[in-house]
């Protein structure tokens, strides 16, 4: 009986300390909210932070939904006021479209990236952010919160003028000469593997339904296609996805054609635009939106 007798108080103190620390972290979250759950080092963390922020703040005018391809188009690159990039790295545009459609208020414009439609919607995220009571992370993560505070303190984002100047500097530079051959080969191999026709068809059908739904509620939805590197454009996944999307949306009206100078674009890892190229694409999206707006006013 000796071991147990001496072990019990030890276990009680140990459990007490654990519970006390959890309580403190729970109360800290209740007090400060999920804003401290940064920085994100996983795609899941990033998705949670993006969605928490969207639901916490006033509804923006324009949102962009999509995968990691659109995720590279950083919000600070856009000069449009009240713009939010809700693209989820490693995710499907359907996930956020579903979440948006379940909110009481919608943005005026929803841009839907159609490059990667082979991934299943994340039902867990949809459930978590669609209900009346949104599931906040229950506990503060002390180490990550401390790092977030340190990062924010030391690397505060530049003001609008500084950011604009930095972007202009980047655009004046020549395109990168980085050799992405190894990535391109790997990406091509992955994009020529498997049989994703089923998920793409299901996603496109659901996107179509959700577009109808949000448009009925007064929002405008546009499909956009972000350019890929030539080799990737010819991959099985991309050609097949394009054919299915084009067949589902043959009319040009839901499309927002963007025409960035392709020769200037670079994909550092074979699939995702580098910083300068993302900036060029953002400018192309902005001018396409302005054109569409102008055409609408002319009518």
């Amino acid at each position: 009986m000796m071991a147990q007798m001496s072990g019990l108080p030890w276990l009680i103190r140990c459990a007490g300390a654990a519970v006390a620390l959890l309580l403190v972290c729970g109360l800290a979250t209740a007090r400060f909210g999920s804003a401290l759950q940064q920085p994100s080092v996983t795609t899941r963390d990033g998705s949670l932070i993006t969605l928490h922020r969207y639901l916490r703040e006033p509804v923006p005018d324009i949102v962009l939904v999509g995968s990691s391809v659109a995720w590279r188009l950083k919000e600070e690159y856009f000069s449009l006021p009240r713009f939010r990039n809700l693209a989820l790295a490693g995710g499907s545009p359907v996930t956020v479209l579903e979440i948006l459609a379940k909110q009481p208020s919608l943005p005026k414009i929803i841009l839907i990236e159609t490059n990667i439609l082979s991934r299943e919607p994340d039902s867990e995220l949809i459930g978590q952010f669609s209900g009346r009571t949104r599931a906040e992370a229950p506990f503060l993560r002390p180490v990550r919160a401390a790092v977030a505070v340190h990062e924010t303190w030391n690397h505060a984002p530049p003001n609008a003028a500084q950011a604009r100047a930095e972007q202009d500097r980047l655009l004046r530079e020549p395109p990168s000469m980085f050799d992405n051959k190894a990535y391109l080969e790997l990406a091509l191999r992955q994009m020529n593997e498997g049989e994703p026709t089923g998920p793409v068809r299901a996603n496109v059908a659901r996107v179509s339904e959700l577009i109808d739904e949000v448009q009925r509620r007064g929002s405008r939805a546009f499909l956009i296609e972000i350019p890929f590197e030539a080799g990737i454009e010819d991959s099985r996944l991309v050609t097949m996805s394009k054919a299915i999307v084009q067949a589902a949306f043959p009319d040009q009206s839901p499309w927002l054609p963007i025409n960035p100078p392709r020769g200037e674009l670079r994909w550092a890892d074979g699939v995702h635009l580098d910083e300068r190229s993302a900036l060029i694409v953002v400018r192309a999206i902005e001018s396409a939106l302005a054109e569409r707006d102008g055409a609408r006013r002319d009518k």
Binding site: P9, G16, A17, L21
Partner: peptide, 10 residues
């Protein structure tokens, strides 16, 4: 015991 409790929570 408190140290191990903190490790468990962390």
């Amino acid at each position: 015991p408190y140290l191990y409790g903190a490790l468990a929570a962390l």
